[in-house]
Structure formats: structure tokens, C-alpha cells
């Protein structure tokens, strides 16, 4: 899978082998289809790519893994999967808290207070914590 995005960064990031690219618009439809086919949502991995977030959604069916790769700008809202897979609410709350990813339609919203303390105002997993 060739990755010829319009990435402005000079730094090239690796792409997980076999990952399927996906955008915000078709994420929900694709995941709904996977759900009907009987896939399990394993987890999601968020990575800080400078201007963007890169989110991998990992699925599994009959011991074969399927990865969806989503690149979003940091201001954009990502549709939550928690209405399709209930278990996604904890994963998304964690991403929201540690990376600052914005989600729309979170089933249970911890308001960014899942792991961190009440007075903490940073998103610690970003590469540059203070910005």
C-alpha cells in the first residue's frame, strides 16, 4: 500500500503493514459493515504526527487482524464508535485524555478525567507536552 499523502512534514512515518486507509466520512459506515461481518474491535492506537493524529483501529475475526488507518487534523472531530461497539468508550476516552483527540457522540464521557488528576491540564502523550 503506497502512502502518497500530501504530508507537509519532512519526517516520514512508517505505515503498519496491511493497514487499510480510511477517512472520517466513511469510518462509521466501514465499521458498521465490519460489525455485521462479525469482527471484534480489539483496540485503537493513537499516534501524534505533528499536525495530525494517526489513529489505527485494530479488528479481529477468526484470528486474523484487520487494521484501519485514519489520519485526521488535530482540530477535526472524530465520530465515536461507542454506539456500534460499546467497548470503544473506554478506548476513546483514553485517547481524548492523553492525546486531546476530539470525539463526537461519546457514549460515556469522562470529560478527560479518566486517568489524570482533577487539576491536570496537559495531554501527556503528545510529543511536545506543553504545546
Amino acid at each position: 500500500m503506497t502512502q502518497t499523502d500530501t504530508q507537509p512534514q519532512e519526517k516520514q512515518f512508517p505505515v503498519l503493514e496491511g493497514a487499510e486507509n480510511i477517512t472520517i466520512d466513511n469510518l462509521t459506515a466501514r465499521v458498521k459493515k465490519l460489525d455485521e461481518e462479525g469482527y471484534r474491535l480489539l483496540t485503537a492506537t493513537c499516534l501524534d504526527r505533528g499536525e495530525k493524529y494517526e489513529i489505527y483501529y485494530h479488528f479481529d475475526k477468526d484470528l486474523t487482524m484487520l487494521h484501519l488507518r485514519l489520519l485526521v487534523n488535530k482540530e477535526e472531530e472524530v465520530p465515536s464508535l461507542s454506539l456500534i461497539y460499546l467497548c470503544a468508550f473506554l478506548i476513546e476516552n483514553e485517547m481524548k485524555e492523553l492525546f486531546g483527540v476530539k470525539f463526537s457522540g461519546l457514549f460515556v464521557n469522562y470529560g478527560g478525567r479518566l486517568f489524570l488528576g482533577e487539576d491536570s491540564d496537559i495531554t501527556p502523550m503528545l510529543k511536545c507536552v506543553d504545546c
Binding site: L42, T43, T45, L47, H58, L86, C87, L90
Partner: peptide, 17 residues
């Protein structure tokens, strides 16, 4: 660059609800 750990209890906690 990144180490992401998905532990089993992390996915079992939502089931408590």
C-alpha cells in the same frame, strides 16, 4: 516512537456495566 499496550482488563471493564 510509540509503545501502545492494550491489556485484557482494559477491554473487560466495560462489560461490568
Amino acid at each position: 516512537e510509540r509503545v501502545r499496550v492494550r491489556t485484557p482488563t482494559f477491554s473487560n471493564v466495560p462489560a461490568l456495566s
